[in-house]
């Protein structure tokens, strides 16, 4: 109750950034994520060459800066510039991860709200599905669906990835909403004559927003790993489109003479998920009122 930590006159964002500046690890993680985001957005301009341009004379070239070509990470078996392919893969993988996370959040939050609003059998039904999803590895369900629809449909794949983690959003939304509705400020507003819409949009949503942001930051690396794993296994993003996962999978065949082909995308994935985990932990400590109060 005495945590009047936020200095008056400063927005929440400024307070957040000030606290980030104190931890070098968080700062590094944020810088990496920003870098990846910029690369993803401006990929076609960042990429040194056309990522699909084939140069059969320069196949499996090691990293070089020769007159023949400027291949920062060398070339693949068709002589395509790997650095450029990596940049494009970053773009696609981030696109899938961001869309996937947002879709999951929207679906989950809506379902959570519905369960908390209607209670009774609706709630029971939702919880049976949530429990089922929580106990079933999502990748298995995704595989079952892909077995029927076939692989290669990118839009469908993004949609499928989006469902990953919906049950966690649903669970926290439902939990936080119920605790607000039952004995908190929400009851006060209802006793003042406020309607359902006011309670949910004006009060509950702003209050659970921080929790949702934290959940998104936890979900994001999971989504990245899911997408890259599936692309790695050959059931996700298919060539000629480049994803960090299928790039790595393909590099596996050249470990003996061109190990960097596999390692480069792997390092990018690792640094991105690690950075997001660090940022997620930090956000949870900063935003989550529960852990904050007990700290």
């Amino acid at each position: 109750m005495s945590d009047a930590t936020a200095p008056a006159g400063r927005g929440p964002l400024a307070t957040l950034l000030a606290s980030a500046a104190k931890s070098p690890l968080v700062l590094l993680a944020l810088i990496w994520l920003l870098f990846i985001l910029i690369v993803a957005i401006f990929a076609p301009w960042v990429a040194p060459m056309d990522y699909q341009e084939i140069d059969l004379l320069a196949r499996l070239a090691p990293p070089s800066w020769s007159a023949r070509g400027f291949h920062l990470l060398g070339t693949d078996h068709l002589g395509r510039d790997l650095a450029s392919r990596l940049v494009m893969a970053v773009q696609l993988s981030m696109l899938v991860a961001i869309f996937g996370t947002v879709i999951g959040a929207i679906i989950g939050v809506t379902i959570g709200f519905v369960a908390a609003r209607f209670r009774g059998w609706v709630d029971d039904l939702v919880m049976v599905f949530v429990d089922f999803q929580a106990s079933m590895p999502f990748v298995i369900i995704a595989l079952a669906v892909l077995a029927v629809t076939g692989t290669g449909n990118m839009l469908l794949f993004i949609l499928l990835i989006g469902f990953q983690g919906w049950e966690k959003y649903a669970r926290i939304t439902r939990g936080m909403t119920l605790s607000a509705v039952n004995h908190g400020y929400a009851l006060s507003v209802r006793l003042l004559g406020g309607g359902t819409l006011r309670v949910y949009l004006r009060h509950i949503l702003p209050n659970i927003f921080a929790g949702l942001i934290v959940q998104m930051s936890i979900n994001f690396p999971e989504t990245v790993i899911l997408e890259t794993s599936m692309s790695f296994l050959g059931v996700g993003i298919q060539p000629p489109n480049a994803s960090l996962g299928n790039l790595l999978s393909y590099g596996r065949d050249y470990l003996l003479n061109a190990w960097w082909i596999a390692v480069a995308p792997g390092v990018v994935i690792f640094l991105t998920t690690l950075s997001m985990s660090i940022v997620g932990d930090w956000l949870r400590d900063e935003l989550d009122p529960v852990t904050r109060r007990s700290a």
Binding site: M1, H183, G184, Y185, L187, S188, H203, P206
Partner: peptide, 9 residues
Amino acid sequence: PFLATDPRM
């Protein structure tokens, strides 16, 4: 009163 007021308003 801490439960009865919206902490973010």
